[in-house]
C-alpha cells in the first residue's frame, strides 16, 4: 500500500509543479492546494499504513490490541488539513482582491510593488507633472 501512495504523491507533485509554473495566480493557488494534499499524504504514508486495525481500546481492556494503526500521523494530518484549508481560502480571497485592484491575475503584469525601471520613470514623470 505504501508504494502506491508514494507514487500518488509523485503524481500530485508533478501536477503541482506544472500548475505553479503558470503565470496565472489562480492556477498557482490550485497548485498550492495539490501541494498540501501531497504533503498530507507524505505524513500519512511515512507513518506507515495499517488496514482494519483502528487504534481503539476494547471495552473492559486497558491496552489496545497489538499492531494497531498509528494514530499520530492521522492527528497531524487533520491539523495540517485545517491549516492548509484556511490558507487556501486566504489565498483565493487575495487573488480576488488583487484582480479587483490590479485588474490582472498574470503575475508578470503585477508590478505595483516593484515597478520596473521604465514604469518607475513614467511614474516619476507623472508625479513631477502633478
Amino acid at each position: 500500500m505504501e508504494p502506491i501512495i508514494a507514487v500518488l504523491v509523485g503524481v500530485l507533485m508533478t501536477a503541482t509543479v506544472y500548475l505553479m509554473l503558470d503565470r496565472n495566480f489562480v492556477r498557482f493557488i490550485f497548485g498550492l492546494a495539490l501541494l498540501s494534499h501531497a504533503a498530507n499524504l507524505v505524513i500519512l504514508d511515512s507513518g506507515g499504513l495499517t488496514r482494519a486495525r483502528p487504534p481503539l481500546i476494547a471495552p473492559g481492556e486497558s491496552l489496545p490490541l497489538p499492531d494497531i494503526s498509528n494514530a499520530v500521523p492521522q492527528a497531524l494530518m487533520l491539523t495540517a488539513i485545517v491549516i492548509s484549508f484556511s490558507l487556501f481560502t486566504f489565498a483565493l480571497v487575495l487573488a480576488f482582491r488583487t484582480y479587483q485592484e490590479l485588474e490582472t491575475v498574470d503575475t508578470d503584469r503585477m508590478r505595483a510593488a516593484e515597478p520596473s525601471s521604465a514604469g518607475a520613470a513614467a511614474d516619476a514623470g507623472r508625479r513631477a507633472a502633478d
Binding site: A39, V42, T98, M110, R111
Partner: peptide, 25 residues
C-alpha cells in the same frame, strides 16, 4: 502595492510551510 507584495509573500511562504510539513512527515 500591498496586494501585489502579498501575492509574492503568500506564494513563497505557503510553499515553505508545505515543504516544512512534508519534511516533518
Amino acid at each position: 502595492a500591498q496586494l501585489d507584495g502579498a501575492v509574492r509573500y503568500a506564494a513563497l511562504s505557503l510553499i515553505a510551510t508545505t515543504l516544512l510539513l512534508s519534511g516533518i512527515g
